[in-house]
Design a protein around this nucleic acid. Structure first.
Length: 130
DNA sequence: CCTTTGACTCACT
DNA sequence: CAGTGAGCCAAAG
């Protein structure tokens, strides 16, 4: 469990205010980190796995936090919306990076959408046990 | 401190 | 079947 405004990874991370005492972000990250290579999941699935306490929007916030900080251990590119659309691509360093990384993992992406989304979809509730 | 917004989703019209 | 509204919770203005 990572705690609050403490350094997440690098000593020189510009990690802003972000988390105070909420471990929500960590939970999201942990789940995201568990996503098998070549698979993807949705914000809603993660939120649901976390108990649906928070809405999927918070998951997106967590991803935003990842981009904001120097955290690179989180494969945020494997997280898309429930339609399999790369809704968050715009928030990547180069927006194309998300799609690029996905394709690199043999995930078929077309027009910012994962074609075989259902096939590569990974449900945390299923693998992590629920 | 109150208002607005956001990488979402579901339900209703 | 597509458009709209509401719920969601935290962060930024």
């Amino acid at each position: 469990m990572i705690v609050a405004k403490k350094k997440i990874n690098s000593p020189a991370d510009p990690l802003p205010v972000l988390f105070k005492h909420t471990s929500f972000f960590e939970d999201v990250w942990e789940v995201v980190k568990q996503i098998p290579k070549g698979k993807v999941t949705s914000y809603g699935a993660i939120a649901k796995y976390l108990g649906a306490k928070s809405s999927a929007r918070m998951v997106g916030w967590a991803m935003n936090a990842v981009n904001n900080s120097n955290i690179k251990d989180i494969p945020a590119h494997r997280v898309v919306n429930r339609n399999g659309m790369l809704s968050g691509k715009a928030h990547f360093s180069p927006p194309e990076k998300m799609e690029k990384l996905l394709k690199k993992e043999k995930i078929k992406v077309k027009d910012d959408c994962i074609e075989n989304f259902q096939a590569v979809f990974w449900d945390p509730s299923e693998d992590l046990g629920l």
